[in-house]
């Protein structure tokens, strides 16, 4: 399969990249890992005049902790995230490890996954559940956007054409937190989820009461979504099967699935419930410092 002709630019810093973007407008498309963009070019879904390779931008690399905040560069690969590390939340590592295949994980980037904004994106759900914010840098400077509200539709986000997603900000992990990630697909690898769920729990110091929770659902709406009712059910509740079951029920009610060739809306809704329950159990085990249950 052939790539259509395009011009190629590799700016060496963010300022240059933004200038090029300003100059070319929507004629230029930023290129990160390429696992999605190059496929879409080959399938003729996109035909930009130029690709702007972000690979040289140091501003988009690395990870650092700053006070209570973690800042992950948009160019972190899924493999790097999957292998964890001091600043990578375990929930994000779990999602990253479930993405595609080793070859895809080695190329796919944090920023790319967020910008591509597929409804079942394996990095988006953990980030949503973790309450992450995206840093969008444009000609006027940077702005921070909560991921809750960032996704607008399949492939569409609040990012303006002149902006580059440069970093992702997260609260630094604290004791008493735990995450769960559940992905249901046909195959065990090389798979886009039929339904996937990420759950994040924060327990009170008593280790039993839920201080805060977020549940993110994938493939049950046009975008990765948070399940607000589930969070509401969980907040202040006891971390037990009863609350989890109620939260799972609420998550299923929040889901807005449709029928497509991969699965029916009814099945997806039921799976949103089942996977939420499992993700919450997994999150609790992690929060209580136990061994992780079946990732």
């Amino acid at each position: 399969m052939l790539l259509p002709p395009f011009e190629y630019y590799r700016p060496s810093n963010l300022e240059q990249a933004l200038a090029l973007l300003r100059e070319m407008g929507d004629q230029a498309h930023p290129l990160a890992g390429g696992t999605d963009l190059l496929v879409n070019l080959k399938l003729k879904k996109l035909a930009p005049k130029a690709l702007l390779d972000l690979g040289g931008l140091e501003e988009l690399k690395g990870s650092r902790a700053d006070g209570g905040q973690v800042s992950l560069g948009a160019l972190n690969s899924a493999s790097r995230l999957a292998s964890g590390g001091p600043h990578v939340p375990r929930l994000l590592a779990m999602g990253a490890g479930a993405l595609g295949s080793p070859q895809v994980r080695n190329r796919a980037t944090l920023g790319g996954n967020l910008v591509t904004a597929r409804p079942a994106a394996d990095l988006c759900l953990p980030l949503l559940a973790l309450g992450a914010r995206a840093v969008l840098t444009g000609p006027q400077g940077s702005r921070e956007v909560s991921l809750d509200g960032y996704f607008q539709g399949p492939g569409y986000t609040v990012k303006e054409p002149g902006e580059i997603l440069t970093r992702v900000l997260l609260e630094a992990p604290k004791p008493g937190q735990g995450g769960g990630y559940q992905k249901l697909g046909l195959r065990q690898a090389l798979e886009i989820a039929l339904v996937n769920v990420a759950a994040h729990l924060e327990l009170e110091p008593d280790g039993k009461t839920i201080a805060m929770a977020r549940v993110a659902l994938g493939a049950v709406a046009p975008v990765p979504m948070l399940a607000p009712s589930a969070a509401q059910v969980l907040q202040g509740a006891k971390a037990d099967e009863k609350s989890f079951t109620a939260a799972a029920q609420a998550a299923a009610a929040d889901a807005k699935p449709i029928d497509d060739h991969r699965g029916s809306a009814a099945y997806r809704r039921d799976m949103a419930r089942t996977l939420t329950l499992r993700a919450l159990r997994q999150a609790l085990a992690q929060a209580q410092g136990g061994k992780e249950v079946g990732a």
Binding site: R187, A189, E191, I192
Partner: peptide
């Protein structure tokens, strides 16, 4: 054909 690719037409991987 909706799924004319090896991504959407699922043959077993080694993990399956």
């Amino acid at each position: 054909i909706i799924n004319a690719s090896l991504g959407e037409y699922h043959i077993p991987t080694v993990m399956d």
